[in-house]
Design a protein around this nucleic acid. Sequence first.
DNA 1: ATATATACGGAGGGTGCCTCCGTTTTGCAA
DNA 2: TTGCAAAACGGAGGCACCCTCCGTATATAT
Lengths: 189, 189
Amino acid sequence: MESQKRKPRADAVRNRELLISAARDVLKTGGPNASLEAVAREAGVGIGTLYRHFPTREALFHAVFSRDLEDIVVLAEGQETAADPVAALRSWLHANVALVETKRGMLGALSVVMTPESKEAYSGDMQRIKAAVDRLLERAAEAGQIRDGVTSEDLLQTMYALCYAREPGPDWREKVLKLLDIFLDGLKL
Amino acid sequence: MESQKRKPRADAVRNRELLISAARDVLKTGGPNASLEAVAREAGVGIGTLYRHFPTREALFHAVFSRDLEDIVVLAEGQETAADPVAALRSWLHANVALVETKRGMLGALSVVMTPESKEAYSGDMQRIKAAVDRLLERAAEAGQIRDGVTSEDLLQTMYALCYAREPGPDWREKVLKLLDIFLDGLKL
DNA sequence: ATATATACGGAGGGTGCCTCCGTTTTGCAA
DNA sequence: TTGCAAAACGGAGGCACCCTCCGTATATAT
């Protein structure tokens, strides 16, 4: 192996971190169309540096959210041994909504995640989430509690769609959960 | 009454129509973030003219879609006398999805409709749609076929959310209808 | 200490947003 | 008709953002 690699430069590592952190802030208020130049300014680096680290908007988003995605995965995997599969599903979805709520800007930004172009970039995390949710769905279907033929993708898409449909506001969570629960009820049988 | 009005200028009327027509084309391919300057170019008028006729992006969208909204309203009002309220609801929603499908660019653009800022501009058409759908919901609820406490806004929001969640593709309609039907099933009881 | 691979920054060219205002066109009345 | 004021036109201008490119700076390895 010619893995005679140099150690990564310290400034590069530092700047990357600064950018992610700045992006987190800017996305929070600016949503998915937030200005990347603003991110660079906030991070105190040149715009060129931003683009070198993250060639596309999606790449930056990915870096910002991969940790949050991690939380979601852990949550899903934690539910896998729960007694009531449907309740587990519901509970995971609710937790998920709550997470989206706290992240605010993430709400809009997450929609970017679901677009086909970025599917590839996210494949790693998404794969794990999908796998976990699929196991939950399968368990519930086997227990005869929900219809089958419903994929984790269906469920995730619906959840994010409902989150995304409504502007943040005082009754945001309440409304989203209401619609989500109706959907879950439709799943039963 | 001092309605001593001048006749509206011919060029103004003509340009307005050109703009709407150009906007329809540009939105079809460009989605909700399409360039307004492109619309003006396409229409062969100056950008200033566009902004004079339509002070905001929403105003332009409204002009473009008000005819389509009209179709939807007529559809809803036509269902009001149907025998089975739930079937009527489902049938209207399906027709609605089909309409969204044919309009393509409308898909994204419609999301603009649902944002709070534009609520006012749309109040006219939206009021009629909501009224019609509310009557359908009410009938179904009175017949004891669906839960109550669900508003037309809930339903519309969900439908548009599901339409919007998925990129157009070969199985677009199939998937959207699947999810929508699940939701409707959740409504029953 | 020096070389060189790496990374940095920001100028530059392109596009879009929206406003403002000098110029043109149009409807109406004389 | 002609004249004129109201109404509409167009696009320049100022600002922000996007993304690329490349001359300059710097960290690592020898």
